Simulated scan of single mutants.
Amino acid sequence: MTEPASWTHDQVHLRVHAAMTAAMRADPHSIDAALVQSGSLDPASRQFVAHARRLVLACTAALTCVLASHRPGEGPHGESICRGCGTPECRTLRGLAHVLAAYSVRPALVDRAEAWRRADAHFWRSGRPVPLLIEDLPDGFVARAADGPGDEPAPLLIIDRHTGALSRWPSMPMEVLACEYTRYRAGL
């Protein structure tokens, strides 16, 4: 059985995005100070490490162009197809998925900074930022506006640590929320 083009596209997109995010978060000055200037690397390795961040960003940008062309769509009879190939299973995306999996490129876990960024985008009010509180859960992060309306408790937003998915929850004690969210992720 083959996976539909939309599933393969999503998997490749998550992996390319993870590689791009890791490269963007890397500090080239720290890399230079720790590895390149220490003199412990041979010249070819020094050259590679010095340019690795830029190389990863270029490669992931190129793969993003491939993903823009080979994206899921609907065929003439309503079936899921790749818009680039016109087929139900995209050989290009399938090949990319296999290569990325072989080199263990996996979607990065959402960290606290990314959880804050996603919550900030969600909670913006009337074009203005809202102060946020972010708390850790085993499977994600809980975000709430620091200034809830009136006496009502601020609505909770959970950012899944594994997928980055957002879900809204009623206000409840953190211990109960952690248990309920674990059950929710397990499909119980």
Rank of each mutant, 00 (worst) to 15 (best):
T21D: 07
P138S: 12
V36F: 10
A143Y: 02
P107V: 12
C179A: 13
D151F: 15
E152R: 10
V105H: 14
R168F: 09
Y103T: 04
A5I: 08
R185M: 10
A146D: 06
R128Q: 07
R183V: 13
R54L: 14
D111F: 04
P72R: 06
L55S: 14
P170I: 08
A154V: 07
P149F: 14
A108Q: 05
E79G: 09
A154K: 06
S40L: 15
S126I: 14
H162K: 13
Y181Q: 01
D136N: 06
M20E: 10
R118M: 01
R71A: 01
A143T: 02
P131G: 12
G148N: 08
A62N: 04
R117D: 01
G150H: 14
L100H: 06
E74T: 12
E152V: 09
C85G: 02
T182V: 13
L156S: 00
A23G: 07
M174E: 12
E135R: 15
L67T: 02
M174F: 03
V49R: 00
A26R: 00
A113Q: 11
R161H: 15
R94Y: 02
R128H: 08
P72L: 03
E114S: 00
H9T: 10
C59R: 07
T182L: 11
L55K: 13
P4G: 03
R53Q: 15
H13L: 12
H29M: 12
R185Q: 13
R71L: 04
I31D: 05
G187E: 09
R15K: 09
C59I: 00
T64M: 03
G73R: 15
E74R: 14
H162V: 13
